[in-house]
Design a protein around this nucleic acid. Structure first.
Lengths: 149, 149
DNA sequence: CAAAGTAGTCAACTAGGTTGTCTAACCTTA
DNA sequence: TAAGGTTAGACAACCTAGTTGACTACTTTG
């Protein structure tokens, strides 16, 4: 049996590849994973560019490039931070929210198919197990999302 | 609960970060993940540069660069292919096998710690579940190992 | 209120891939 | 057995997505 690390890498790749293929099929602009993960963060909480970099696991400069792209393409805008004049909140536009909704549907389709393929109970155990592992390793300040290759 | 994709990405990163840290602690040259994954492949079977590229999920040119590095650093050598004069088998040197042995120990330490943290049964379910999922998605020709970011 | 720290921007650079092209060898198949 | 298509590997040019470092404006802390 493969070591768990390999299985994690291959599974992440496998599900990501499917996501990417289906995005193309339905004719949606194929943003990169990082872009989508930014959307998910912005849906969950208000965040600045620095916050985004931390969440992704890249430098703030790299995060700034991503945010610039999303801004140019009309998915996000920047708003002044209410108390800190240096900072700006990055927020989703309508276009951004639309994209996120479609992408979320796609993710949940894929997750449902996974549940069907390996059994809902098994999927549940996987999710709970990995969640527990992350909690065990990093406590409450989680590592970046970006896989280090 | 986070979507399973996020959990896969974060878990892969978390375990990989730990591996990297410990490699440094014990003073081993911190090769990149790709290098280690090449070692593992070469241990399992004879492989050419093209095979390696396929296994990693990168082009043969990218694989050739990695093999060149490993060769310069003394971890692998090339041997003529017995029947195909174009091709060369890439094989581990003693130094390569030594490195692999240490790295494998480290991986199994980490996997044991994971088992301890979340329970051996849970880990087992995770591994079997992911294996089944990969089989379901890709059948016998597995996707590349490299996470697409 | 001075010193240290932080958000964001700009610029230069690098790592690690990509595509495209070529040669020599291999594999049909007619 | 010769012809046409395919494949392994090498070389080169290029590109993408990150990095480090430096700087300004603002904020927090002792």
């Amino acid at each position: 049996m493969e070591p768990v690390t390999m299985l994690l890498a291959m599974s992440y790749r496998a599900i990501g590849d499917q996501f990417h293929d289906r995005l193309e099929q339905i004719g949606l602009e194929p943003l990169r994973p990082a872009h989508g993960y930014v959307f998910r963060l912005l849906k969950a909480k208000r965040a600045t560019t620095v916050d985004i970099g931390q969440h992704l696991g890249v430098t703030k400069q790299a995060a700034a490039k991503i945010v610039n792209e999303l801004d140019e393409w009309g998915y996000v805008t920047r708003e002044p931070h209410p108390t800190d004049k240096r900072a700006q909140y990055v927020t989703l536009t309508g276009k951004g929210r639309d994209y996120l909704r479609l992408a979320d549907n796609l993710w949940s389709d894929l997750e449902n198919e996974m549940a069907e393929a390996i059994g809902p109970g098994t999927l549940d155990t996987i999710k709970q197990g990995l969640t527990a592992y992350l909690q065990h390793v990093h406590g409450d300040d989680q590592p970046g999302l970006r896989p280090v290759w």
